[in-house]
């Protein structure tokens, strides 16, 4: 199988504190890998290593067959995008949505007018109001902001998208719609996704593969279905057991 992303011996540090320990991970093309872990497990740190946002790390990041250096190329940033957890913090409050969405494309050499046309298509696709591009972030709900963030990530027509808890701050009914939207877009564009979440229900709903992280150490990886049938490790089992289930009686 062709790999979109391959991580070898990834270690990462915050100051002197090591937060990731020799993580090895592969994501196949057009697969969605769910990265699960509790707080302090290092799951968001791993995303920052992949995108090159965290400089203090060692190990090898291979993207689509190419080993990545410390500085990522412009092409890398076109092909790799990310959606963050906190809808209130992921859009610059001082810019109109139109600016937020088109700036990335303009820097890639698309003309402002073409960029606007593509934005309008995306806005319609995301079921956002028509006047979205003229408005500021504060006038949108959490769910809408996350859809805008997803639209921004899709603007540059990426192959690989990292979603860091994109639905955790949303209400359950809104979460459901967001997940469905992500699934549809994934099919339409043939995306490869690294989906970070603490919620096993969400992971099961959307992921093909799963990786479990704890205190910076990778516990187990494998196909999602196999994990939910029978986790390989005690910690995986403990996590799965802890998920609150509806008790009808």
């Amino acid at each position: 199988m062709d790999h979109m992303l391959e991580l070898r011996d990834i270690c990462a540090y915050y100051g002197d504190k090591q937060v990731l320990f020799d993580v090895d991970l592969v994501i196949g093309k057009h697969r969605t890998l769910g990265l699960v872990g509790e707080s302090g497990s290092g799951r968001s740190t791993l995303a920052r290593v992949v995108t090159g946002l965290l400089k203090k790390s060692t190990g090898t990041v291979v993207f689509d067959g190419e080993v990545q250096g410390a500085k990522r190329s412009a092409e890398f940033y076109r092909r790799v995008q990310m959606v963050f957890q906190n809808p209130d913090a992921s859009l610059n409050p001082k810019h109109r949505i139109g600016t937020i969405l088109t700036d990335g494309m303009v820097i890639q050499g698309v003309s402002r007018a073409d960029a606007m046309v593509r934005c309008r298509e995306l806005i319609t696709r995301m079921d956002l109001p028509e006047d979205t591009l003229e408005r500021y972030p504060r006038s949108f709900s959490g769910g809408q902001k996350q859809r805008i963030a997803l639209a921004r990530a899709l603007c540059t027509d990426p192959d690989f998208v990292i979603l860091d808890e994109p639905t955790s701050a949303l209400d359950v009914s809104v979460q459901r719609r967001m997940l469905d939207l992500i699934k549809e877009i994934r099919e339409e564009r043939g995306l490869t996704i690294l989906f970070i979440s603490h919620d096993l229900g969400v992971i099961r709903d959307i992921c093909d593969d799963i990786a479990v992280l704890r205190h910076g150490v990778l516990q187990e990886t494998g196909e999602s279905a196999a994990f939910f049938a029978s986790p390989k490790t005690d910690y995986g089992r403990e996590l799965l057991k802890a998920v609150p289930r509806i008790e009808y009686e």
Binding site: N86, D103, G104
Partner: peptide, 10 residues
């Protein structure tokens, strides 16, 4: 996060 997002836009 929007600063990180800006970095990711290159």
């Amino acid at each position: 996060e929007w600063v990180d997002a800006a970095r990711l836009q290159g």
